[in-house]
């Protein structure tokens, strides 16, 4: 194919290759488009809607929109920032995100994207759903209060680990993460910390046991620099405060 395929993103020419989406082409060009359920290692999911951009005047998810020559894409506009902020606020009130009481605070992608879009307060009425915490596994704990249904653990476990440990069950507001065992407990699975599924959670929903606060609050991944500079928690090495195994 021709090598000069490109689209315009906020006035900047972004080249792309066949098969790339607006998101992956932007990422390759070093342009940050806020996102949560997108991870370059997996097929797009398009569920969180945080990566909404305007393509030729239409609002679309950057992660699921194929790049095409001549597209005019808007990313950093006040209008999109406001939509993204609204989505973040809805994600926050739908679960129980008590940042001061969460081990992942400061190295949490949900929080970091919320900082990035300038979310000061949740604005909406809190659901305060009652969700369980599953500590049955010897090495990991799942706090369902913090799950945002990005399905990254589902995809990682199914597509990379070949274990198919997680699934999302129910529809609409009833949708929730489940563990594929009769008891529904993580302890009954062969889940391991070495799994890809243990390295992709953008929030504090999947946590490693027996470790905590190794990096003090204030010195964590997103405490000093925004996610647009630091990168996703799944792409940053564990030793640098991210989730990726070296």
């Amino acid at each position: 194919m021709s090598e000069d395929q490109s689209f315009m993103l906020d006035g900047r020419r972004v080249p792309f290759q066949d098969g790339q989406t607006v998101m992956t082409a932007a990422l390759a060009a070093g342009i940050y488009i806020p996102h949560l359920c997108f991870n370059p290692e997996f097929a797009p999911h398009g569920s969180c809607r945080v990566c909404l951009v305007k393509v030729n005047g239409r609002v679309q998810a950057a992660c699921a929109t194929p790049a095409a020559s001549g597209q005019i894409v808007q990313n950093e506009t006040g209008e999109l920032r406001e939509i993204r902020r609204g989505i973040l606020q809805m994600l926050f009130v739908e679960g129980n995100h008590v940042c001061p009481a969460c081990e992942k605070s400061g190295a949490c992608q949900l929080q970091a994207v919320a900082y990035y879009v300038g979310m000061l307060a949740p604005h909406y009425t809190h659901f305060y759903p009652r969700r369980p915490v599953d500590a049955s596994h010897p090495e990991a704990v799942i706090d369902f209060n913090r799950c945002i249904l990005c399905e990254l653990c589902v995809r990682a476990s199914r597509d990379v680990d070949g274990k198919n440990i997680f699934a999302v069950q129910g529809r609409g507001i009833q949708a929730h993460l489940v563990v594929n065992t009769t008891s529904g407990k993580l302890g009954a699975t062969d889940f391991s910390l070495a799994d890809k599924a243990a390295q992709v959670c953008p929030t504090g929903a999947i946590l490693t046991k027996h470790r905590g606060y190794e990096i003090p609050i204030g010195q964590r991944l997103y405490d000093r620099k925004p996610i647009s500079v630091v990168g996703d928690v799944a792409t940053v090495a564990e030793s640098k405060g991210g989730r990726r195994h070296e």
Binding site: F92, V93, N96, H97, V98, P100, A101, P122, H126, Y128
Partner: peptide
Amino acid sequence: LNGGVPAMRN
């Protein structure tokens, strides 16, 4: 802003 730690009793 969001109830914080006391709201964990919810």
